[in-house]
Design a protein around this nucleic acid. Structure first.
Length: 593
DNA sequence: CTGGGGATGGGGCCC
DNA sequence: CGGGCCCCATCCCCA
């Protein structure tokens, strides 16, 4: 979706973007939401940077000597405890001097182990909870005290505890080890994920698109002689009062991973650096960055980890989606396999089909390129791409043209090449009727300016239901494409050139997709004069921009909803796809109207 | 502007 | 169930 968004951004005027709306249609109907998936993460990232630099910190948390400067607003956003403490929640009263007021304050939280507190803080700012197995309990406890439900849930899941069976008596190394082992089981993970999926889907929080420094670096803990005495709300808050500040001080936790969505649902669905809660296993034992972007050599295992942890994603969404489809028998008859593994990307929300494909997809967000060419050093995100790349070095060109000596690296290159031999140009511009051998060239043609000139030559169109090349016709065809049945020129064109001009249906009625002019086919391109008039009415919209915009929006919609697997690939299917898009747009427009 | 090659990302099938 | 492999769609770049 990032791609889609980029496209969208690039096609939508900045002013419109800023205004939060795009001139899709004349009135306010054109309001659309333009997502900025990375916004939330960027904000969080910067807040974290400020925290690390001690900038704008108006709250310092202390725990047994360790000090953690932070921001009230962030803490209030992530913790029920602080929310109530600072009076940031309705009905809640500001507690003590730490209250919503203003000023810098210190909150002593000796009841939360320093490392756990650090991990929770890290979580608050990075949406990633990184902890050692041995520190799980401390974190769980801290999360409970501070009212960070998503972390509580996650820790419980990992520890295999239910809400009621939290054991505060630690020391049961054996038991814990056993639990930790259990945690490693897929089942356990899946269980967690399953719950999260729904959250993810329900809450449209944008997970972190990039990896915000999830290092496990220890927080600046400068042990002051005496922890800032602060009789703040921390201790006055009844509900979150610590059971016993005596928690053993495991050196365990080092925070990190988890993603955050708001409140309760927050962390859950989000989990991830890119979305997922990191449930590292062995990795937890090592206090180094869990999934550094720079970690080039990603072993398969690591990759797996990434998928599960970093993305945690995989399981998150996969379960639910899969269950849905499987349960309902939906998912389409012959594609059981496919229905088993749809997973939602925590970053772009896109549904990724195919077993084990999410980790691969996640690398498109992280930029990781684990596969390096041993010959030239070029790196790739996928090993199959590396494999193809290697053909360059080996000289292998496995796809020979049967008609000429040409050989190709890619099967699709051969395919394209073959069309040259055959002379086939199955992709025809619905507007100017120029034919192309390649679909992408037609698309480029359609999107570009190359087809700008209005074809003054009246062309009989084919059958009525067929309508392709929406924007082409819409834009330049302008009025020519209007059909009296579909649009009332008097009402739509003059008064709302926008809507009519770019209405997906506008100008498409009666346009065929290759079908010959059939009975009932309408002459869309009317008289020159009429055409001119219509175009004049369209005014500025004759420019290519609207067409681009529409395309961008279309892409955007598709991107959001997820690409339809196996969309039409043949020219016919492509046309059908355009038709479908146009119809959908038309429906939407109708609804708006 | 078009043709062509290459790169990238997603989905399906098979192991 | 995940990974490998393949195919496809799309985009970018260059001539």
């Amino acid at each position: 979706m990032t791609q889609t968004q980029h496209r969208l951004q690039s096609t939508v005027p900045l002013s419109a973007m800023k205004a939060g709306k795009v001139a899709m249609s004349p009135g306010e109907d054109g309001l659309i939401g333009i997502p900025f998936p990375e916004h939330s993460s960027e904000i969080l990232f910067r807040l974290n940077a400020q925290r690390r630099a001690g900038l704008l910190c108006d709250l310092t948390l202390t725990s047994r000597g360790a000090r953690y400067p932070t921001h009230r607003s962030v803490m209030a956003a992530v913790s029920l405890y602080f929310r109530g403490l600072f009076g940031a929640e309705e009905g809640a009263e500001a507690g003590g001097e730490a209250g919503g007021g203003g000023g810098f304050s210190v909150c002593q939280l000796d009841c939360v182990a320093p490392d756990a507190l650090g991990a929770l803080l890290e979580f608050a700012y990075t949406a990633t909870l990184t902890i050692r197995s041995s520190g799980m309990r401390d974190v769980l406890r801290g999360a409970q005290l501070l009212g960070i439900q998503c972390v509580v849930d996650a820790c419980r899941d990992i520890l295999g505890e239910t809400a009621g069976e939290v054991e505060w008596e630690t020391g049961e190394e054996r038991v814990q080890a056993e639990r930790e082992r259990r945690v490693m089981k897929k089942g356990s993970r899946r269980k967690i994920d399953r719950r999260r999926v729904n959250k993810v889907e329900s809450s449209h929080h944008q997970p972190l698109p990039h990896r915000p420094n999830i290092n496990t670096h220890q927080h600046p803990s400068t042990p002051p002689p005496h922890p800032s005495p602060v009789q703040d709300g921390a201790h006055s808050h009844p509900s979150t009062r610590p059971p016993s500040p005596e928690q053993d001080e495991h050196p365990p936790t080092t925070g990190q991973n988890g993603e955050r969505k708001q409140g309760r649902d927050a962390g859950r669905g989000s989990t991830a650096v890119n979305g997922g809660v990191h449930w590292p296993q062995e990795r937890l034992l090592a206090p180094h960055p869990p999934v550094p972007l720079s970690d080039d050599r990603l072993s398969e295992d690591e990759e797996e980890m990434e998928g599960v942890g970093n993305g945690g994603v995989p399981s998150f969404t996969s379960a639910p989606l899969a269950e849905q489809e499987v349960a309902t028998g939906a998912g389409g008859g012959g594609r059981k396999r496919k229905s088993q593994t749809p997973q939602q990307c925590p970053v772009c929300q896109k549904i990724i089909h195919g077993a084990g494909k999410l980790p691969r997809h996640m690398r498109t967000h992280t930029g990781e390129k684990p596969f390096e060419c041993s010959t030239c050093g070029v790196r790739f995100t996928r090993n199959d791409k590396l494999k193809i790349h290697m053909r360059k070095h080996t000289g292998e060109r496995p796809y020979p043209c049967p008609h000429c000596p040409a050989r190709f690296l890619h099967s699709y290159d051969l395919k394209n090449h073959l069309s040259l031999h055959s002379g086939a140009r199955p992709f025809e511009c619905p507007l100017c009727h120029k034919a192309f051998a390649r679909e992408d060239h037609l698309q480029r043609h359609r999107k570009g300016l190359s087809c700008l000139e209005v074809r003054t030559r009246a062309r009989p169109r084919r059958g009525p239901g067929a309508d392709h090349g929406e924007e082409g016709r819409r834009v330049r065809g302008g009025g020519r494409g209007y059909s009296p049945d579909q649009l009332n020129p008097l009402e739509n064109l003059p008064l709302q050139p926008h809507a009519s001009a770019f209405h997906p249906r506008a100008g498409m009625v009666g346009l065929g997709d290759g079908a010959e002019a059939g009975a009932g086919g309408q002459m869309v391109f009317q008289e020159e004069a009429d055409g001119e008039q219509a175009i004049a009415l369209l005014g500025p919209h004759r420019l290519p921009y609207p067409g681009l915009l529409w395309r961008g929006l279309e892409l955007g919609v598709r991107g959001v909803e997820g690409e339809e697997a196996g969309g039409g690939h043949s020219p016919a299917l492509q046309h059908a796809r355009w038709d479908k898009e146009a119809e959908e747009e038309a429906e939407e427009d109708e609804e708006d109207e």
